[in-house]
């Protein structure tokens, strides 16, 4: 029973992958944009650092690895769930989602996973390749950091998806959420360390940010990757990361039941 129920989400995921590949050409624009941002950011850091070293032993070389890997991670943190909910409420196709015997959030997750798998080939690999060619090969600090990096990235993806889903639920009742989604997107970009690492922020601000979930999306895995923090520090922060996953999962569970009861169906 469990396995056949699981299989339906697997098939939703597979259908998404097939669908993603029918729109092959959409991805070029995205790769181009990402590459431009990545290359300019990398050369900005290079110009800024010259040959100097930042206080915790960070070099220009580290910063370039940081930038490439940040671009790579941003592909992994692509979520469609907010747009998906908003569009289906706007067009009224949420009715179709709800008339099927599926957990709608399970379905949204499966769809995002399918998109992500397609993006691994369509975006992640090209960006990694272009970054390696145009900037440098982004090598991890040590082989022993790989498992920690992997675990941390998975937790980051969980935080990222859950935040998106919780935000997306608002769209069940309010029709236009565009502005709010934009605000959230830019907040995450700024406050998560995706462009500017948190160590460059003033102490008090960094302190506040460390209490929020956003830095556990980008900053933590990137710190692990370039080795800019001690093992003990990393372990402590991964614990906080895990706690955020649990908090957000609880909130998600709580809201998801309620939000579906408030669904609005437009038209027809």
């Amino acid at each position: 029973m469990f396995s056949s129920s699981f299989r339906k989400y697997l098939f939703i995921c597979k259908t998404r992958i097939i669908r993603s590949f029918t729109y092959r050409f959409d991805v070029f624009g995205n790769i181009l944009m990402q590459t431009i941002v990545m290359v300019t950011t990398a050369f900005f850091w290079k110009a800024l650092f010259q040959d100097e070293t930042f206080r915790n032993g960070i070099t220009a070389d580290n910063m370039m690895t940081y930038t490439i890997m940040s671009s790579v991670l941003s592909v992994l943190f692509t979520t469609g769930v907010e747009r998906r909910i908003q569009e289906s409420v706007e067009k009224g196709s949420i009715a179709i989602d709800l008339m099927r015997p599926v957990n709608v959030f399970g379905m949204f997750f499966a769809e995002d996973l399918g998109n992500l798998i397609a993006l691994l080939f369509q975006n992640l690999l090209p960006i990694l390749l272009l970054g390696s060619l145009l900037i440098k090969v982004p090598t991890i600090v040590s082989v022993s950091a790989i498992p920690m990096f992997a675990v941390s990235v998975i937790l980051s993806m969980a935080i990222n998806w859950l935040t998106a889903a919780i935000f997306g639920m608002w769209a069940f009742t309010a029709i236009s959420m565009d502005a709010l989604f934009q605000v959230k997107k830019h907040l995450i970009r700024l406050l998560s360390g995706s462009i500017i690492p948190i160590w460059f922020f003033p102490k008090w601000l960094a302190g506040i940010l460390n209490a929020l979930p956003f830095v556990y999306i980008y900053q933590l895995p990137l710190d692990i990757y370039i080795g800019s923090a001690s093992n003990e520090e990393i372990q402590g922060r991964m614990l906080i990361q895990l706690i955020w996953v649990l908090i957000l999962a609880a909130l998600f569970y709580l809201f998801s039941k309620k939000s579906l009861k408030k669904v609005l169906v437009q038209g027809g």
Binding site: T15, R19, A95, G267, G268
Partner: peptide, 11 residues
């Protein structure tokens, strides 16, 4: 629903 479809447009 006569006014909307459950068929996937892209497939």
């Amino acid at each position: 629903f006569g006014q909307r479809t459950q068929l996937n447009w892209d497939l």
